[in-house]
Design a protein around this nucleic acid. Sequence first.
RNA 1: AGACCUAUGGUGUAAUCGGUAACACAGCUGUUUUUGGUGCAGUCGUUCUAGGUUCGAGUCCUAGUAGGUCUACCA
Length: 561
Amino acid sequence: MSTESKESLNFIEQIVEEDIASGKHNGAILTRFPPEPNGYLHIGHAKALWVNFGISQKYGGKTNLRFDDTNPTTEETEFVDSIKEDIEWLGYEWDGEPLYASDYFPQLYQFAIDLIKKGLAYVEDSSAEEIGKMKGDIGVPGQNSPYRDRQIEENLRLFEGMKNGEFPDGTRVLRAKIDMAHPNLLLRDPVLYRIKHETHHRTGDDWCIYPLYDFAHGQSDSIENITHSLCSLEFRHHRDLYDWLIEKLEIFPSRQIEFARMNVEYMITSKRRLPKLVNEHFVNGWNDPRMPTLSGMRRRGYPPAAIRNFCRDTGLAKRDNLIEINKLEYAVRQELNKTAPRVMGVLDPLKVVITNYPEGKTEDLTLINNPEDESQGSRILPFSREIYIEKKDFMEDPPRKFFRLGPGKNVRLKGAYIVHCDGFVKDESTGEVTEVHCTYYEDSKSGSDTSGVKSKGVLHWVSIDHAVKVEVREYDRLFTEPSPLGHEGKDFLEFFNSDSLVINDNAFVEPSLKNAKPGDRFQFMRMGYYCLDEDSNDEHLVFNRTVTLKDTWAKVQKKNN
RNA sequence: AGACCUAUGGUGUAAUCGGUAACACAGCUGUUUUUGGUGCAGUCGUUCUAGGUUCGAGUCCUAGUAGGUCUACCA
């Protein structure tokens, strides 16, 4: 039968399958995830993780975790730890121990000597500024450095001097000798090594010369026998140098393949700008639930599976893209719908008195925890004469399609009874309804309703005597523009959404939530998904809003206005 | 200005390498429902432009156009 439609492959999978078919590297597949430990992992890294681990998992290979730690000025152990934690949380497992480019410093130094001996590298005495001037321009050839034709012996001696700390920072560099007129600026004698008398987070003061990205990344790939080095599009030009070095050094031929990184509306992933949000206190740290970081999304309540599915569903190609935020939210809701237990929480309380319900009486009702997953069982919920409902669920003068509570209307209290609204109390000075009076139909109890009373709407509620007062943090998008970096002449901070966090300290939830642990995720019925924040303690529960539920009623109302 | 990369519905991706455009999200309509949630059904809408090759082009060729990347001793 040919009813089974063939799965389509993304362009990297196609390359990998071709390589396997041709017997390249005997079919071995080894990828790597190479973060620089100078910040926290973000949604863009999630995509890179998904690509690298996804390929190796699919084709029976492995993935190394390698920290690209060749710049002692910006890198810290704090970031190493957070990166490892985030990768594991996302659900990926690297092969063996974490690796570090800094572990290869001795080898890299030997590679440099090899290049010098081959007459393919030289020590440059010019300043950074002078080197820049001699580089030429786009479309304009550069000029050869006066030091370009130094003798091999002298280069060897000077390079060793650099390593031994004989020269101050910035006085000399090692450059590859390629072509100062090359159309690709990166091949105009690129700098390979620079002097930095700084303490490295792992090698301490062992070295005062450090290789640059182009002389560390590809060589590390090669040392590890990485078969497919998958990176983002902006490294396309580096590939020419990547290949040149592999060829000249005669080392393992790793292959670099570039893909378009994922951009998401209302998020930024710039390694220069993300720290700004933290350092200038626009947000409360790297794991602020508004941040596009993995730790932020974790705290916000996004399940790792949702992020993985999102990466899968957005595909892989080579064109620039801007993914709609609703695609992410769909993935989050989809996952949470299956997994998050339903509970009741009233975010904006309005008191309801059920006047024909006995004072002092409490009933234990049984509610299903998750209609999408029977295995989650049920729980007990107390019902009594005085309850809170959502303020928005009552209207003094409701429009025709309003299925909720209003004078003379019936409504079902979720898992409890149908009530009839007989009246309400209004504060005449403010015009605000402060209390609603209802009577309940005794034989309309959920699950054993014999009343025959009709009611279209269903409301969530909490018993006032039993409810727990909590703090709820309502998060919204961090920026007011889908593409905050895409406005020429305007700083992205101009688009910071000052309403991205609204704190509500007058919310009430059902008593079962007293047992929740930080990180636990729930659906507050009819409202959204919420996650218990780490700021919670026994006396004070704090919930983060992960994402709202879809609200077609709100949409209808909006349309009518 | 040079070189390189990219161009398919509102968004993102696919069409197994020339055989007559599809999937997901969003939108819209209906339906189910003790969450105006979920599910289900339906619907809207697409190959940058101009030439060329071919019986046939989203796929190949040429020329445009548009967008992106590159002139850090960052990665």
